[in-house]
Amino acid sequence: MLKSFFPQHEFKALLFDFDGTIADTMPAHLGAWNKALAKYNLSLSREQHQAWAGRPTLRIVEMMNELHNATIDPQQFLAEKEVHYLSSLHEVTTIASVMNVIRHYHRQIPMAIVTGSRRKIVELTMNQLGLQPYFDLLVCAEDYTNGKPAPDCFLMAANKLSIAPSDCLVFEDAILGMQAAQSAGMNVLMVDEAYALTHAQK
């Protein structure tokens, strides 16, 4: 299946971003952001949300504070946003092109989720979608300090799986995530806006 993209490469691990890559959560997350921001008379555009995709929520709140000269408490906001997200969890679906890959390679090679989202939210979403059986490892926002575009999260996943970075293939939908994977020395497939898989640009 992956030979059509990398005919000369036998990958030993597949690493997947979660939001917008495996699960079509981005509309639910954006809606949660704007419901939580409304009390501060602020909003987040779809374009800005996509540009910041991959960063932990706490860091995005800090950036919003800097951008708007606001004083939003990041931890309080995180809790409020998660309540809004979970209220729309039933609307979230999987992304078929990526799920085809996951099902095809299940039990053949190790697979991990590497995300900037918090473990609790990822696990609740995975349970909702029946994804838990497919993955050997979750690397979530609490597990590392430097978020994407730093390579730390992908390097951590490779290390925990005992696979060389050059033998890992990353699936990402966000620019920051692709930069992180490339900085880690990994090949990347991009999930584009039509949910098709394409080569990520260097």
Results as ranks from 00 to 15, higher is better:
Thr125Ala: 06
Glu142Cys: 01
Pro165Ser: 07
Met111Trp: 14
Val83Phe: 10
Leu129Arg: 07
Thr145Gly: 00
Ala112Ser: 10
Asp192Gly: 03
Glu82Cys: 10
Ala200Met: 08
Ile109Tyr: 00
Ile175Glu: 12
Tyr134Met: 05
Val114Tyr: 01
Ile113Arg: 01
Tyr85Met: 04
Gln201Pro: 00
Ile175Ser: 07
Ala164Asp: 15
Ser87Gly: 11
Cys153Ile: 07
Ala157Ile: 02
Ile102Met: 14
Lys120Val: 09
Cys153Met: 09
Glu193Trp: 05
His199Ala: 14
Val122Trp: 00
Thr198Ser: 14
Pro133Thr: 12
Met178Thr: 13
Asn146Phe: 04
Gln201Ser: 07
Asn100Cys: 11
Met178Trp: 03
Val101His: 03
Ala184Tyr: 06
Leu189Tyr: 13
Gly185Trp: 07
Gly130Leu: 07
Tyr134Thr: 06
Lys148Leu: 02
Cys140Gln: 05
Asp152Lys: 00
Tyr195Met: 05
Ala196His: 14
Asn159Ser: 12
Ala181Gly: 08
Ile121Trp: 04
Ile175Asp: 10
Tyr105Gly: 11
Pro133Tyr: 12
Thr115Gln: 02
Ala164Val: 08
Lys148Gly: 04
Glu91Ala: 14
Leu189Ala: 13
Leu197Gln: 06
Val101Thr: 12
Ser97Asn: 14
Ala194Met: 10
Ser88Tyr: 04
Glu123Asp: 14
Val83Ile: 15
Glu142Gln: 07
Arg119Ile: 02
Asp167Leu: 04
His90Glu: 15
Ala150Glu: 08
Leu197Cys: 13
Thr115Glu: 01
His84Gln: 07
Thr198Arg: 15
Met99Thr: 08
Ile102Thr: 14
Lys160Trp: 13
Glu142Asn: 01
Ala181Arg: 04
Thr94Val: 15
Leu137Cys: 03
Ser166Tyr: 02
Glu193Phe: 08
Tyr85Trp: 06
His106Asp: 14
Tyr195Gln: 10
Asn127Cys: 00
Gly177His: 04
Ala158Pro: 01
His106Ser: 14
Gly116Val: 00
Met156His: 05
Cys153Ala: 13
Arg118Leu: 09
Asp143Asn: 11
Asn100Gly: 12
Ser162Pro: 03
Leu89Trp: 12
Ser97Phe: 09
His106Ile: 08
Leu86Phe: 13
Val170Gly: 06
Asp152Cys: 00
Met99Gln: 13
Asp136Cys: 11
Pro149Ser: 04
Glu142Ser: 04
Val191Asp: 00
Ala141Val: 08
Ala174Pro: 12
Val191Phe: 10
Val122Ile: 10
Pro149Ile: 05
Leu138Asn: 05
Gln182Gly: 08
Lys160Asn: 12
Lys120Trp: 07
Leu176Trp: 09
Arg107Lys: 11
Ala112Glu: 03
Ile95Pro: 01
Tyr134Phe: 11
Leu138Cys: 08
Leu131Tyr: 11
Phe154Ser: 07
